[in-house]
Each structure stands twice: as C-alpha cells, then as structure tokens.
Design a protein around this nucleic acid. Sequence first.
RNA 1: GGCCCCAUAGUCUAGCGGUUAGGACGUCGGCCUCUCACGCCGAAAUCCCGGGUUCAAGUCCCGGUGGGGUCACCA
Length: 478
Amino acid sequence: MSTEVRVRIAPSPTGDPHVGTAYIALFNYVFAKKQGGKFILRIEDTDRARSTLESEEAILRALKWVGLGWDEGPDIGGAYGPYRQSERSAIYQEHAQLLVESGAAYPCFCAEARLEALRAAQRAEKKPPGYDGLCRRLDRGEARSKVAAKEKHVLRLAMPKEGETKVQDGLRGELVFQNATIDDQVLLKSDGFPTYHLANVVDDHLMKISHVVRAEEWISSTPKHVQLYQAFGWQAPEFFHMPLLRNADKSKISKRKNPVSLDYYQDSGFLPEALVNFLGLMGFSFGGDREKFTLAEMIETFDWQKVSLGGPVFDLEKLSWLNGLYLRELSTAQVIERLRNWRLSDEMLARMVPLVHERMRRLDEFIPQVDFFLRGDLAYGSALTDAIPKERDAAATAKVLVDLADELDNVRSWNPQTLEPVVRAFSEKIGWKTKELFMPVRIAITGVSASPPLFDTMNVIGKELVRRRLRQSAQLLR
RNA sequence: GGCCCCAUAGUCUAGCGGUUAGGACGUCGGCCUCUCACGCCGAAAUCCCGGGUUCAAGUCCCGGUGGGGUCACCA
C-alpha cells in the first residue's frame, strides 16, 4: 500500500465560500505540503436541493484567492476523478448495494411523517432520538420484494447494537463510543443520492485519502464512518479533528454573529496572505514568539504537536492589525497593484461611474459620491438615528435591518433586478411602507441620505458588505 | 436531555513537574511627531473549582463546574 499523504478539503457548494472552509483547507494544505503529499479538492454536492454551480465556482475562486491551490479537483481533474460527488452516483449505488448484500445496510421504507412522530415521541419521553429499527427487523425477502416493487425507500446503516467503536484521532488520541448510542444513519437517500456519510467514506477510500483533517463538529459521526470502513473491509484513514472557529460568545462561528464569507474579507480589503497567516494563528503556534509567518514558513515548521484544541475566537481586530503589518511591508507600486485588484480596478470604476455620473458637476465630486463603495465599515454619526421612521423606534428599526440582512442572505444571484422584488416583498411582509423602509436601509448601507438608486448601489457594494453594514447599523441602533 | 470534545488575562497563544507564568491583539499611560498612523517604552489583567499523586502541579490522575459540538433522506 502506498504511503503517500493525500488529504482533501470537501466543501459543500450550498452558499458563500466560508472562512471555516479556508481554515480547514489551510491545515490540510500545510500538512500535505509538509509531507510532500497531495491536496485534493472534492465538491460534496449530494444535497441536490441546495447545491449550486454558482456556489461551487465562488468557493474555488475564494480558495485560489487565499492561495490554497489543489493538486486534484473538479476543475483540473486528476487520477481519481470525478471530483464532484454528483457525478459519482453510480459508484455510491454500487457500494451501497455491497453493504446491503453483506447485511451492513438495509432498506428502510418509513415515511418522513413516521420518523417525525417517532422523534417527537422520543423527545417527549426525554429519550435520545434515533431510528427505532422497524425496517431493520423486516424479513429480508419481503424487503427485497418491496424494493423490487420500487417502493420509496432509503438505505440505512445496520449499526451493531453492542460493543464499542474506537476512533483514532491524531490530535486527541483514542475516542471510544458505545455502539448502542449510535443511530442507524441513512446512507442513501430516497432520491438515490448518498448522504455525506456514505459518499465521504467511499470517496476517501477510492481517492486514497490517507488523513482526514476536518472540523470538530464531525467527531460524533466518525464512529459511523469507522463502521463503514469496517463493513467495506477497508482501512480507515487517520483522523484529525480541528477545533471550530468561534464567535465572540464562543459558539461555532456563524454568519449571524460574524462576517463569515471569504468574499467579505476580500471586499473589505484584507490581504489573502494576512488572512491565511491569521487562520494559521487559530489553533497553531509557529514556535518562539513568531506570529507573522508566510504559508511557506508554516509548512516548514508544521507539526500536529503545535496545534492546540481550544476553540479559537475569531478576532477581526487582531486580523486587522496583522493585515496592517503586511500592507505596510509592500512597496508603493505593490500597494497600487493591490488597490487596482481591489476596488480601483477599471471594472469597478465602470460599475461605479454610471451610478454617480449624472450627479456630478465636477470631477472632484466623484470621490465623495463613491465613498461608500470604497469603504469597509462606515461611520454613521447621527444619521442612523435620524433615519428612524416616525411611528417606529430604534429597536424596531434595528430588528428590521437584521431581518433584512437575513433575507438578503438567501439571494443567490445578486443583481438589481433580483434585489428589488426581494426588498419590496420584505417591506410588505413586515408591514412597513417602502418609504419607511428604504431610508434607514439606505443610510445603513451608504451612510448618507443621498445616494444612487438603492438596488444599484447594493449591487455594486456586494452582498457580504451590504449584510455586514445592515448588521452593524442594527447594532448601533440598539 | 444522551453521547462526545475542550479549559492559561477580554481575545489568540507559549509552557510539556521546580519560571518573577513568556509573547501578541485589545485597553490604559508615556515617548516620538505639525496632526494622524507607524514605531518605541511602560502599566493593569490569566493558570475554572475541589480532591488526589509528588519533596514540588498551570503542567500528571480523578471528580465537579463551565463552554462547545452533535443527535436530519444538510454537509
């Protein structure tokens, strides 16, 4: 068996490129490079309702932006493709079939409603929720004929009900789980697509992944994965569960409490090398008192022993400081280059100029009018409180802004035409006249009461910055 | 609630049986300076609690407590 180190980052393309993805990608990448191994990108798009190609593209773009390139992936191929799970359905079906034949998995015909009722009952009795094994007890012949009759079903893992499952974690040692406490996980959904559990095990094995470096939130499902490896007769990879990035209140980092999209960091003018350095500071210590180090230097000194397990709070303030260190190190020419690649590109100018063109009398009025396009966070002074509609109060306005931020999060394709109906529908939903709603929103997003049309403005500023400003404004109003 | 993980200042961390518990962000004060920023100097602030083990415990063990994760036909 080959001893080559092969690791992967396996994002699910269901939203914006997440800072946590970059964080985990970083540790995979660094470990692979340190070992002279391969770093693989695999797209886990088995949730066909939520996965989009647009999101996949954004994730690839963002990972490239932070400088974590892959050796094999959906865009460049490789010896173990395809690297998009939606293109591997047949592989999962075959493997699932193997499990059914060996008795390690069984078809389950229970309807959603029954499962919900079951869970509700378990909750009421304060028992741990989980499948009750009804279909597991079905006669195998009967089950087979139901399947043959095309009855709608899923495939479940026939989890052993006795004994224990041991997980070897490279960071935490041996983790022991009582099998009786582990649920009969669904492996194959009724739409024929695999769940994460099946797909991830099958792919990791087929793609010869040697080390699984992933977030701590996966620990509790790892025994299921270990059971699957055993059922297939495969050797499990080594697991390394990294701590979770946290909000200031220590909960798992989330977009409600933190800018979480890599797009936000790019749009706000963070340098990718600073962001990567900062992510490296989360849970990893370089050695000595060094805090500033390059990716290459991190690779050189990387060692799992230097990884700590407490969940690190993601502190934008410290990231900004680090970013300043990098920024000041650049030459003037380099800064100009960075600015051009940021918001002073011809492309950005081409988007901004039409919006302020007719509002300008002289060229010198350009800069003040595009001010909010070029900023990260805004300074509002009293503008926000002044924008509270008559008949409404600060608290209500704050809530509206936050709710709108959430609403906008669901907007997939961000442009003036898609934004307008969303915001208008929102206005109706909350029972505010558009007249009442638009001014506080305008102020929150631009900081001023006179600006180009709202939706065009939002379009250029970008989703993440818009959402961030709405949230920040709400914060200030409270 | 069950299961699991974690625990050094507000935050990120060093420490791997004997240290005045080190560094960084942030905060406060000062210096530099036309202002600001940068830079420099300084200050306040930490070993969650209780038992063990040991001559000696932030460090090892156990138990609490606290925080977190997870309990989906989402990953």
